[in-house]
């Protein structure tokens, strides 16, 4: 499968997403306060931080599920559009994976994956299912194509959800705590799929509490608190030498000891 261009090494990285002083208000409440961040092609950026710090909000704003209140988000060099039609075009180029999987319970695993290309791209059913079959094989679920979500374990459902997002051949994948709702024994299988995806060169933003994953897979880690980025840098920097006491506190609360 050659859906994703390999990581260009050496050449100047091109930004896929640029967040420029992004603000998000819910009424009076400031969920995002002037967040600036840049995500380059092929990069894996992990967002960590305490509950309620705005990580999910940033992801939802990225594919315009929520409108932002200030600042700009550039995707592929252009500010996110505000017209419905154009927003849809942008969303097609971003894959999103939710904490609760959000598979469509009335469709088989195969059709969950095929539905995007069929309805959104107008792809013929046979072709869409062919693509879906290949993607399910890629996430090690070739034997579950005909299963319905209610008959799949959490880890299996989340892998179907990843395949569903990949079916649109996105340029960036957004993961919102993809393993938080999983039993410990199935977390690994999902993280392995994500790791393989990262190695293929997929651009990824991953909100996670899996510090070992962030440490090993992320190119950069951003620490959120109260709607701002406390600090960001390479995993070594964040985990070994955090600049702020708040980051150290947060990491030690999670039981991270380097």
């Amino acid at each position: 499968m050659t859906m994703i261009a390999p990581k260009e090494s050496g050449s100047t990285p091109s930004p896929v997403l640029i967040y420029e002083k992004v603000r998000k208000l819910y009424g009076e409440f400031v969920a995002l306060d002037e967040v600036s961040l840049r995500v380059d092609a092929g990069e894996v950026v992990c967002l960590i931080g305490p509950s309620g710090s705005g990580k999910s909000t940033l992801l939802r704003c990225t594919n315009a599920l929520e409108p932002i209140s200030g600042g700009t988000i550039y995707f592929d060099g252009r500010a996110l559009p505000s017209v419905d039609r154009d927003i849809r075009k942008v969303r097609q180029r971003m894959g999103m994976v939710f904490q609760n999987f959000e598979l469509f319970p009335h469709k088989s695993a195969l059709d969950n994956v095929a539905i995007g290309p069929m309805t959104v791209l107008g792809m013929p059913k046979t072709q869409a299912r062919e693509r879906a079959r290949a993607l399910l094989a890629k996430v090690n679920l070739a034997d579950k194509v005909d299963s319905f979500p209610s008959n799949l374990s959490g880890g299996q459902q989340q892998r179907v959800a990843i395949a569903r997002a990949l079916a649109m051949e996105p340029e960036v994948m957004l993961f919102d705590e993809p393993t938080s709702a999983l039993d410990p024994e199935t977390i690994g299988e999902v993280l392995n799929v994500m790791k393989a995806l990262a190695e293929e060169g997929m651009t990824m933003i991953v909100v996670t509490h899996e510090m070992a994953f962030a440490r090993r897979v992320a190119d950069r880690v951003a620490v959120f608190e109260h709607g701002t980025i406390l600090e960001h840098g390479s995993p070594e920097q964040i985990f070994e030498n955090p600049e702020t006491a708040r980051t150290r506190d947060f990491l030690s609360h999670l039981g991270w000891d380097g």
Binding site: L65, D84, Q92, M96, E102, L103, I115, T119
Partner: peptide, 16 residues
Amino acid sequence: EGQVNAGLALGMSRWQ
């Protein structure tokens, strides 16, 4: 709401 968001995130229109 999450089901709606999952559809929208794929690029579907509200009607789809």
